[in-house]
Simulated scan of single mutants.
Amino acid sequence: MGNHTTVSTFLLWGFSSFPDQQNLLFVMVFFSQVTILAANVSIMVAIKLNHNLHIPMYFFLRGLSFSETCTTMVIIPRMLVDLLSKSKTISLPECATQMFFFFGLGANNCFNMTAMSYDRYTAIHTPLHYTILMTQKICFQLMTASCVTGIVVSLCIVLIVFNLSFCDSSTIQHFFCDITPVVSLACDYTFFQKMVLLAFTAFVLVGSFIFIMISYVFIGSIVMKMPSAKGRYKAFSTCSSHLTVVCIHYGFAGFVYLRPKDSDSFNEDMLMAVTYTVLTPLLNPIVYSLRNKEMQIALKKVLGNICRFSPRW
């Protein structure tokens, strides 16, 4: 280590480059968080209360909404505090904890979307045996497997990153403890460790995305063989919301975590991170609400009940 000084706290530089715009950013992010919570909680409540939505597709959607909400709670409250605070320090254990939950939930989202694609394939490929193949027990097992796999992958990433030695610089060029900005501060970060972290990231993003695309290739081939245009439209409409969310999620995440990095890419990554930590959880419930009539009906019932029982002054 030579004359290096071991780092025990980090400085989340984040949006400090824009000191005059931090109040505006706070307002925008705050209202985005409130909207995310309201939208995702509404979806979860609507699915829970409407018995017509007690089917596998909406079981996975409720799990995705819950996971997306938790993901934002890991990042956004801390971001809001830092936007108003002069001290933007975070201890090493806090940084490790934030990274663990963020990547654990993020990986869970990916595997949850994979399970949703398998559900859609099963519904279209074997509709007569769908209730047998996608029982409540199997859905719960898929959800549990997504969660456990996400936790294991995230734990491995955190153990690798925080077994590195951090020295001299302690300024993270980001608004949360992301992998690349943190490991760039390490003084013993090797090529092997870089490849292992890339392999874990690729396993989550590329592996799940390939499975999803294979599912949709089979779905497409089945749908195109349907003789009825109405039947083809109905089959595609049940998949369109999920496919839209997949494209948004993997598009932004892939750009940040799979493209080659250099020291000048941190600002780009930070701006893209705002998109997938704030915008994506906000878009997902909107996409599922606008493109799904059953969800629209369920949400109207929930909102109607809220208005009916709300106090009138």
Rank of each mutant, 00 (worst) to 15 (best):
K137C: 10
A273I: 05
F100K: 12
S146F: 04
H174R: 10
L84A: 06
F101I: 02
M213E: 12
P227K: 13
Q173H: 11
T131V: 12
F218E: 13
N109M: 15
V45I: 12
I138Q: 14
F175P: 11
I222C: 06
F236T: 03
Y233K: 15
F236W: 14
A115L: 07
T69N: 05
I132R: 15
N163H: 14
L279S: 07
K137L: 09
S169L: 04
F30I: 00
S310W: 10
Q136H: 12
E68L: 14
V34A: 11
Q296C: 06
M116T: 01
P181G: 12
F140W: 09
M113E: 04
Q21W: 14
R78I: 06
T97G: 14
L164D: 05
A235E: 06
T201R: 00
L164W: 00
H51I: 11
Q22D: 11
L303M: 08
N23T: 11
F31P: 02
N292V: 02
N305V: 06
C147G: 09
M1W: 03
I286T: 03
Y121C: 05
M213N: 07
I36G: 02
A38R: 08
S117D: 08
L12T: 06
Y276A: 03
N3I: 01
D188Y: 01
F266P: 03
T126Q: 15
L299R: 00
I132T: 14
T9L: 02
D168R: 13
F60P: 01
Y118Q: 12
L24K: 09
L299A: 05
A38Q: 01
T135Q: 05
V183R: 11
I297P: 01
T144F: 15
L64V: 03
I138S: 08
V7Y: 03
P181C: 11
V196F: 10
K301T: 07
S170Q: 14
T72L: 00
T97L: 15
V81I: 12
P260N: 10
E294P: 00
R232A: 04
Y58F: 08
I90F: 11
Y118E: 06
I248F: 12
L283T: 01
V148A: 13
Q296M: 08
M295D: 03
C247I: 06
L271K: 11
F175N: 06
Y121E: 11
G251I: 03
R312E: 05
P93G: 08
S240E: 07
S289H: 10
H4Q: 04
Y233R: 12
T89W: 04
I43L: 06
S154I: 13
M226S: 05
L198H: 11
K234T: 14
N112K: 05
L64G: 02
L258F: 00
K137D: 11
S240H: 02
H129Y: 15
L83A: 01
M226R: 07
S221V: 01
L197Q: 09
